[in-house]
Design a binder for these strands. Structure first.
Length: 383
RNA sequence: UGGGGGGUCGCCAAGCUGGUAAGGCGCCUGACUGUUACUCAGGUCACACGCAGGUUCGAAUCCUGCCCCCCCAG
């Protein structure tokens, strides 16, 4: 059911197709994040119009609310949220990191204080796997421990080793579920794939060891976690560049949580096939539009009477119909349509960039696209 | 006309047993990378406290007069 087909390469960049129970994903791919079963501010119809081929959901968040049991009874996450294309569920590993103040880590797993009501919850490699089986996503992630890239080497090493031990348990659990199921666990998507996660911070030797320990377990694909968490961009590129050559050539590589548009190009250039990031949607809600020339802060006063579209080069619904002046007004006035229109634009920009990347790889012009992109795109806000 | 209350930054609002003007909102920037539509960080922000005098070393704070606003009663 799950299958990855490598269609073409251009340098280290790869063009492929990922087959899942709910359809095919063209890679390199960007996956919009829909933590709680919804990509914030947009409708599934918008996502279809944008031609998003896969979205994310989050194990931790959906487990707390509305609960994976409820979702399983509803027929699984796809049925529950009205989205019949592929879904990837993150394991909650990132919440181990982002909710650091509210959790405790042991060999067994992670204990969380719910950010909703303070109640205590446990997430183990096994339960994170069970929860995702009930959600019925097409791709499940193993539970891992993500640490800050600036953490002490020893701590990074321990987290990497723990993540590897957890990965083995998660895999064993999944195989067990595939064999015979388990009491109280509904497997709502028998064709679900499971990705392992490479950790090791910014240390090449730890990354190498993590790859070895994770790959020997055997997963449908491998993700690189623990990046874009504070380290400079060039350090991140370097770690990616040192890690992908060690990963199986015939399996997808998924860089978790990244990034800015130029990050995507640079990491495709280093052999990454899949990305997800909250940046386009979160920043849209905070008034930052990402354009071919760089970030545009739509809330700035300078756009108060600017009747041009956010990005004249963009073909999205927002840019075809609305002016910077109007979008600024919506943002300043606190209209929720601002979040919607901005999110549509940013997602279009990301997805369209991926389309152009895919096309360039096929035509063998990826390097030229990469250079042109850097020539026009600047991380500094522009007008 | 009588009685009561009040006039401090664009708005709201501390201070008013005198000692040399809080804060909030707004506005302007920025941050945001496996997401609480959250939030955070800077900046701007009254040689000035309705007006005019007086007392005092010193007054938004005390005194006098005037102007204006609100409420109640006519």
């Amino acid at each position: 059911m799950f299958r990855f087909e490598l269609l073409a390469t251009d340098g280290l960049a790869r063009r492929g197709e990922l087959h899942t129970p709910h359809g095919v994903i063209q890679t390199p791919a960007f996956m919009p994040v829909g933590t709680r079963g919804a990509v914030k501010a947009v409708t599934p119809r918008d996502l279809l119009d944008l031609d998003a081929e896969i979205i994310l959901g989050n194990t931790y968040h959906l487990h707390l609310r509305p609960g994976d049991d409820l979702i399983a009874r509803a027929g699984g996450l796809h049925a529950f949220i009205g989205w019949d294309r592929p879904i990837l569920t993150d394991s909650g590993g990132y919440q181990v990191f982002s909710l650091a103040a509210m959790r405790r880590i042991t060999e067994e797993g992670a204990e969380f204080r719910s950010h909703l009501d303070g109640s205590l919850h446990r997430l183990s490699p096994e339960s994170a796997t069970d929860i995702q089986a009930q959600l019925g996503s097409d791709i499940a992630m193993v539970l891992d421990e993500c640490v800050a890239s600036t953490a002490e080497v020893q701590g990074v090493r321990e987290a990497m080793l723990l993540s590897a031990r957890w990965a083995r348990r998660a895999r064993e659990r999944l195989l067990q579920l595939r064999e015979s199921g388990a009491d109280g666990v509904s497997v709502t998507n028998p064709g679900q794939a499971q990705f392992g996660i490479i950790q090791g911070g910014i240390h090449p030797d730890l990354r190498a060891e993590s790859v070895q320990r994770t790959v020997e377990i055997g997963f449908e694909a491998y993700a690189i976690g623990g990046l874009s968490v504070g380290e400079p961009a060039d350090v991140m590129y370097s770690v990616v560049g040192q890690t992908t050559p060690r990963l199986p050539h015939d399996r997808p590589r998924y860089l978790m949580g990244t990034g800015m548009p130029d990050d995507l190009i640079e990491c495709v250039a280093r052999g990454i096939d899949m990305f997800d990031c909250v940046l386009p949607t979160r920043n849209a809600r905070n008034g930052q539009l990402l354009t071919s020339r760089g970030p545009l802060v739509i809330k700035n006063a300078r756009y108060a009477e600017d009747r041009t579209p956010p990005d004249p080069a963009c073909g999205c619904y927002t840019c075809r119909h609305f002016s910077r002046a109007y979008l600024r007004h919506l943002y300043i006035a606190g209209e929720m349509t601002a979040a919607t229109l901005n999110s549509i634009h940013n997602l279009y920009f990301y997805l369209d960039t991926m389309r152009r990347i895919r096309e360039a790889i096929v035509f063998g012009t990826f390097e030229r696209l990469r250079q042109e992109f850097h020539q026009t795109f600047s991380r500094r806000p522009q007008q």
